[in-house]
Each structure stands twice: as C-alpha cells, then as structure tokens.
Write a protein that binds this DNA or RNA. Structure first.
Lengths: 224, 224
DNA sequence: TTTTAAGTCAATCGACTGATTTAATGGGTG
DNA sequence: CACCCATTAAATCAGTCGATTGACTTAAAA
C-alpha cells in the first residue's frame, strides 16, 4: 500500500492513458456526444465495456480528464514564455504569449492530433461548454498575460474591449481546429507548420486590437 | 391537387413549421446530437413520436431543412445589399455585404433566437459539418460578393489570403453564436443590437485583411 | 353521399445506451 | 508458498433510440 512501486497502479495508469488517447481520437473523428462510453472501451481493446465508467465515472468526467491533460502542458508553456518576455513588451508580444503556448502544444502532439477539434466542440456544445471555460479560463498565467496585455492596449470603450477579447479567443480555438482538420484529412494547409499558423493568428489578433472603432450611429439601424 | 387551397397540405405545412421551430430551439439549448427525434416530436406536441421521421426522414434531413430555411432569407438579404452597393466600393463595404445579411437575419428572429448557436454546432461537429458547408458556401450571391471583395484586397500571398478568409468566416459564425448565447441567458451584451455587433465584426475583419504579413523565418521555429 | 388518400396516432421491433452485478485474472505481500 | 485485492472480463438490467407497422381522422374529390 505504501510501497513506491505498485504494479497494479502502473497497469491501471497505463490503461487510463490508453483510454484517454482512444477517447480523444474518437471524439475528434465522430463527435463527443455521438461516441458512447462503450465504443470507447471497445476501441481501447478493453473487453470490459464499462472500463470508462470504472476509471473515470461519467462522460463529463472523462472529457474533463482529457481537457486537463492538455491544459497542464499549455499552462507550462505559457509560464515559460511569460518568464522570458520583456515586461515592457508591446501588444504583439503579449498576444503571442496567448497564442504560441497553444500552437506549440498542438505541434508537440504530432500528426494527426485531435485536441484542437475536441476543444472546438467543447466550445460550441451547450452541455459541454462549461467544462472548457471552467478550467481553461481560470489559470493564473493566463490572467497574468491578459493583465499585461491590457496595460499595453490602446484606449477602447469597455464593450469594444470585451468584444475583441472574445474574438481573439474564438479565432484561436477555431483556427487551430480548422488547421487540424486539414492536417487530418491530408489536405493542403495554409501554413506549413504550427509556428507559421501562430504567426498568422498573432498578425490578425494584433490587427483586431488596433483596428479603428466605428462609432454607433445616433439613430441608425434597420427595421423588420 | 391543382386546387389553390388544400386543407391537408396546409395542416401538414403548419406542423412541419412547428416541428422545425421546436427542433431548432431544442438543438440550440441542448445540442444537436443530444436531442432525439422523439424528444422533438413530443416537445412539438405531436402524439406521434415518429412525427419527425414522417415529415423529414433522418435527423440529417431535419438539420438540412432548418439550415435551408434560414439560408434562404440570408441569401435574399445579401442579394439586396449587393444590388445597392457601389461596384467601386472598398474592402469595408464588401465585408459588410458578408456580415450584415447574417446579423440582420438574426435580428429579424427576435429574442431569443437559436439559429446562430445551431450553426456554430454544425460548424464544429464532424458529422454535421458537411451539411453547413455544402449549402451555405455555394450560393451565387456569396460567390459574387467574395469575387468583388477579392478584387479590392491588398496583394497577399495565396496562403495568407486563404487563412484570412477562413478567419473571417469563423469570426462571423462564432461571434454571432456568442452574442446569441448572452442574449438567451439574459446576460449583458457588448453591443446593444445586432447592427452594432455587425459593425464590430466589420471593423475586425477589415483590419485582418489589411494586417501586416509577418514573413516566415528562414529556419526558425521551436523544437518539441 | 361515398371514395380516396394525406396526415396523425399508438404500439411494437431490434439495437444500443449507461449502469450494476458477478466472476476471473494476476501481480505484490506476508 | 498462499493469500489478497485492484483490475479486467463477462453477463445482465431497465431505459431510450430510430424505424416500421396498421388503424384512425380529416377533408378534398367523385
């Protein structure tokens, strides 16, 4: 019990990882909601059709476990990048601190990867949405980078600031998913590697932050 | 058969519409994949649990029917806007021709609406994705506007052009869904109306098209 | 009025789901 | 060595799924 090396724990941990890998792939390929725990257990080579339930509990718990595994590595990379970024850096560098940890993590997964498509589903499904936001948007390094970025941002009306922050997040999630889809089906990709994709995203998000703000019309708008 | 008023057809058409409305709402609230045809039929007040199957066939057919209903109105609005846009107009005006038809359509649906969230799910679910792209990206007026826009765009490397077009599409779909979510849960929204949301999107997308293009490093990139 | 057929309803089918229960396995420990 | 127990396997449960069926309702057509 207190022994440092327990073969049973090792075996269980290995199957846990194998189930996580399998679930992630099936989720990306067929959709999170469409894949049953049974299918995952069987595809993972577990004779036990209840293996997912035994090791993780509900599907929501499984989804959380997958998300956490990746979030940890992204957080690690973000801390690293944050540490070696000049505190006096400009908007572009702080945007990079938000984008690069994600793209570099995806790059480290090899081809094909599945996490970006998985994440995009979490972001749009009403039942899963909370799982992603709860754990991805509350990490300390993320808040730190956002704080630094905000200090270097041009003066913007509060609602425009909120809107553009949302845009940056949506772009990051869904453009990564899109590239991953292209990679998975062997289609040509806009950029040859994730680093190039990140550069394109940073260009775009930086441009959004610096975009002109068209004022609302005094009484305009369309009817019907 | 040739008579102008057929009570049976009228009744059927009415229940069809009612089923479409109900399905759209449930899809947005609980997720497209998570909602069964049975639940839709029951929620629509049809004693027949197979009403969806009878009127539409498979769930994919139902999803297509919902998407088409909205796509038609959006197409109509885009044609209208295209007709009264100066052929010599600039990037910003052509971007508006892509954004405004969608936001105005959503505005016409009242609050709460469900179509934007529904569309966002179609865009990210691997099994449903084709349904959306097949019918939304092949309309004549859309191709026309994109052509006009391309002629006024700054010179961009082909891969950057493709990447930014993708960004514009993702932003449009997911920012509308996000605003709709906020509206539905009664949360404060960045902009008071859809027209303001469109203006923010047009500002952002126009800025993306005009953003600097950072060249790829000759041999840079990170390992692992 | 009778006929006809579209629309609706109620019951049912096999297949699959998550969950629970019971049995077999096999490595670590006393 | 023999025991123990976490893990894996296997069998089973009630519930829901999409799909099909035939009977009933309704209103236009003959």
């Amino acid at each position: 019990m207190v022994s440092t090396v327990d073969g049973r724990l090792r075996r269980a941990a290995a199957t846990r990882e194998h189930i996580l890998d399998t679930a992630e792939r099936l989720f990306a390929e067929r959709g999170v909601v469409a894949v049953s725990n049974r299918q995952i257990s069987e595809a993972a080579g577990q004779g036990n059709t209840a293996a997912v339930g035994y090791h993780f509990g509900t599907k929501a718990d499984l989804v959380r476990a997958i998300a956490r595994r990746h979030a940890d590595d992204i957080e690690r990379r973000r801390k690293l990048l944050l540490a070696r970024t000049d505190p006096a850096a400009g908007v572009r560098e702080w945007v990079a601190c938000l984008v690069r940890p994600v793209t570099e993590h995806l790059g480290s997964l090899g081809v094909p990867s599945w996490y970006a498509r998985f994440g995009a589903q979490l972001a749009t499904d009403p039942a899963l949405r909370g799982i992603l936001t709860d754990q991805a948007l509350t990490t300390p390094s993320l808040r730190e980078v956002v704080d630094r970025l905000n200090r270097r941002l041009p003066d913007l009306p509060l609602e425009v600031h909120a809107e553009r922050a949302e845009m940056a997040g949506q772009l990051l999630v869904h453009m990564c998913a899109e590239r991953e889809r292209a990679l998975a089906r062997g289609a040509p990709t806009a950029k040859p590697d994730w680093h190039g994709t990140a550069t394109g995203l940073i260009d775009a998000i930086t441009a959004i932050w610096h975009a002109e703000v068209t004022p609302a019309e005094v009484a305009g708008g369309e009817a019907e």
